[in-house]
Design a protein around this nucleic acid. Structure first.
Lengths: 239, 239
DNA sequence: CGCGGTGTTGAGACCTGTCAAGACGTGTGG
DNA sequence: CCACACGTCTTGACAGGTCTCAACACCGCG
C-alpha cells in the first residue's frame, strides 16, 4: 500500500521497523477520485494530509487571464499536502490528473506520530524541503531556459522521480499529461508545446505516443536540459 | 539582535518567553560579510544555519550560458538556510547582495533545541514551507505573467515581507538591487528590466531612485501584478 | 583624471503567443 | 452499425514580447 512512500523515504535516510509501523498506524483510510477532480482546494482549512498511492496529481494556480500554472507534479508515494500540516491551508489547488487512489492522514494523528518520533519529523520536514528544491529548479527553468531545454529538463526530472518508486521500465514511463497540461507546467501554450515536442522527436531524443514517454537518448536529453539530479537529494544520510 | 526574526515568527504563531530564550541560547556568534560575497556555496556539507540580521541576500543558481537565476530574496530576520538543517547541503548558492550581518546556529544546537521544543519544530518547519510557497508564486510569475506584471508582483512581495519586520516607511523601502540582479529574479535581461521600470514609472505606479523604491499607487501595482498576500501566511494560528 | 560598473537608448532578430482551421480518435446516442 | 460531438493534436500565418548587440551617459572611486 504505502510501499512506494517508504521506498522514497528510505532513499534519503534509514527508517526503522518501529517507525514504519508508526507511520502505517497513522493512516486513517483510502479514498479514490476520478481524473480532473480537485482534491485540495486553495484557502480551505485543512485537518488531514493525503498520500498519493496511485495516479498523477498536480499543484495548480488559476490566473485571471484564464491560464493556469502547474507548480509541481505528484506521483505515487508523494505526500501531496504534507506542507498543509503546518500551513493549515494551501495557497494553490491540488488536482487529480488521472484517476487516483490516496491515503488520508489526519493532522492530529500526524502530530502525535511526529512528537513521539523526532527523527521522523526531520525526515518529513526534509521531504517538504525537497519539494521546495523542485520548485527552485522549476523557477530556474522558467526563468532562464528556452522551451526545448525546459521540456527536456522536465522529462528527466519525471524519469528520476518515477524511477525511485519503481514506475519506470528502462528510460520509459507512462505519461498521462495532455499537451495543454504539459504547457501549464512549462509556462508555454499547447501550440508551442506541440512544436517543441516535434523538435525533440526530430532530434531523436524522445518518443511520445499513447500516454507514454520513451527516452531514446538520456544523456542527450540531460545535456539539452542541463539536468543534474542533485536537487532531488537521492542520498542516504542521517537527518 | 534577533528581534526581527521573532517578529516574523510571531506573525504566524505565539512564541513563549521560554521558547524565545531557547532560540537565543542556540545562537553561536555573529559574523559579517561584504557585498557580493558567497555565504553558502551549493553542494558543501553544512553544519550550521544562518539567520540574516542586516542586509539583503539572494539564492542564486548559475547557468552554463553565464546567466544566473535568483530563486528567492532574503531580508533581515530570515533564516536563510534553515532548510540546510535537514538537507545537509544546498542545491543553490546564497550570496550577500549588500554588506550583511548574520547569526550562526550550529545544527547540533538546533537539533537539541527542536527535540526539546516540538512546537518550535513545527514553527520552523512552517517557515521553510512559507519559503516554498514563495517559490511557487515565483513559478507562477515566471510561467504566466508578462514582464510588467511580474515586476509589479515582486515589488509588492518585497513590500509586505519588509513591512512585517519594520523595514518600510509607508509604501517605500530601501532597494539595493541593480537592474541586472532584478532581471535575475524576474527571468529578464537588464535591458528589458530598464524598459519595464520606465513603463511602471510612466504609469505613475512607482518611483525608483538612489537605491529606494517608492510605491505611488499600491492598489494599482497589486492589480497589475495580481498580487494577493495569502501565500505569505500572515496569520496567527496554532501550529 | 581615468576606470569600471551601472543605467539608458536604438535597431533588428528571434522565440513564443494568438488566432484559426482541419485531422484524428474516442465515446455516446440513435 | 452509423452519426455525431467533443477533446486533443497538428499545422499555418501573423503579431508581439523579449533578447542581442552596440553605443553612449552617468557616477563613484582609486
Amino acid at each position: 500500500m504505502i510501499e512506494a512512500h517508504l521506498k522514497k523515504l528510505r532513499v534519503r535516510d534509514d527508517i526503522s521497523g518501529e517507525e514504519e509501523e508508526a507511520i502505517r498506524s497513522a493512516m486513517l483510510e483510502v479514498r479514490e477520485v476520478p481524473a480532473d477532480t480537485p482534491v485540495v482546494r486553495h484557502g480551505r482549512d485543512l485537518h488531514e494530509s493525503i498520500l498519493l498511492l496511485d495516479g498523477w496529481m498536480a499543484r495548480t494556480t488559476a490566473m485571471a487571464s484564464g491560464h493556469q500554472q502547474i507548480s509541481e507534479l505528484q506521483f505515487c508515494g508523494d505526500f501531496v499536502d504534507l506542507h498543509g500540516f503546518t500551513l493549515k491551508r494551501l495557497d494553490h489547488n491540488v488536482m487529480a490528473i488521472t484517476d487516483c487512489r490516496y491515503a488520508v492522514f489526519p493532522h492530529d494523528r500526524l502530530r502525535h506520530l511526529l512528537e513521539k518520533h523526532p527523527h521522523l519529523t526531520r525526515v518529513y520536514w526534509l521531504m517538504t524541503n525537497i519539494d521546495a528544491a523542485i520548485h527552485r529548479e522549476w523557477t530556474v527553468s522558467l526563468g532562464r531556459r528556452p522551451a526545448p531545454s525546459r521540456m527536456a529538463h522536465l522529462f528527466c526530472e519525471i524519469l528520476e522521480r518515477l524511477r525511485i518508486v519503481g514506475q519506470t521500465t528502462g528510460d520509459s514511463y507512462q505519461f498521462p499529461l495532455t499537451q495543454q497540461e504539459l504547457g501549464d507546467c512549462l509556462g508555454l501554450t499547447s501550440v508551442h508545446v506541440n512544436r517543441t515536442l516535434q523538435s525533440l522527436r526530430r532530434q531523436k531524443l524522445i518518443e511520445v505516443a499513447k500516454g507514454r514517454v520513451n527516452i531514446l537518448d538520456l544523456a542527450g536529453l540531460q545535456a539539452l536540459g542541463e539536468f543534474e539530479d542533485d536537487y532531488l537529494y537521492f542520498e542516504k544520510r542521517a537527518r
